[in-house]
């Protein structure tokens, strides 16, 4: 992989991790971090520039999705304390 492409991949990887870490929910956050790491690891040896570009595009779309979704902190207004573990 060309050096320029490589640095682009690394930059996308870091941004995706940074954004995944913003999920307020413990389970979503951990899943997103793990899934991003595993996806990059699984494709670490892809050399074909076309395949790299396709994966990069997929990554950029996922990044946009993470950025849209990781702000969803919604708590039902009807939730009362008695439902929670004391």
């Amino acid at each position: 992989m060309a050096a320029a492409a490589r640095s682009q991949v690394m930059s996308l990887y870091r941004t995706m991790l940074r954004e995944s870490a913003k999920f307020p929910s413990y389970n979503y956050r951990n899943y997103a971090l793990r899934r991003v790491r595993d996806a990059f690891k699984a494709n670490r040896n892809v050399e074909d520039p076309k395949a790299v570009e396709r994966l990069m595009e997929e990554g950029r779309q996922t990044l946009a999705l993470i950025q849209r979704q990781d702000l969803t902190v919604i708590v039902p207004s009807t939730l009362t304390l008695k439902h929670r573990v004391k």
């Binding site: 307020p24 929910s25 413990y26 902190v73 708590v75 439902h83 929670r84 573990v85």
Partner: peptide
């Protein structure tokens, strides 16, 4: 509020 919710 959400953090309180996380005490589930």
């Amino acid at each position: 509020k959400h953090e309180q919710d996380e005490l589930r």
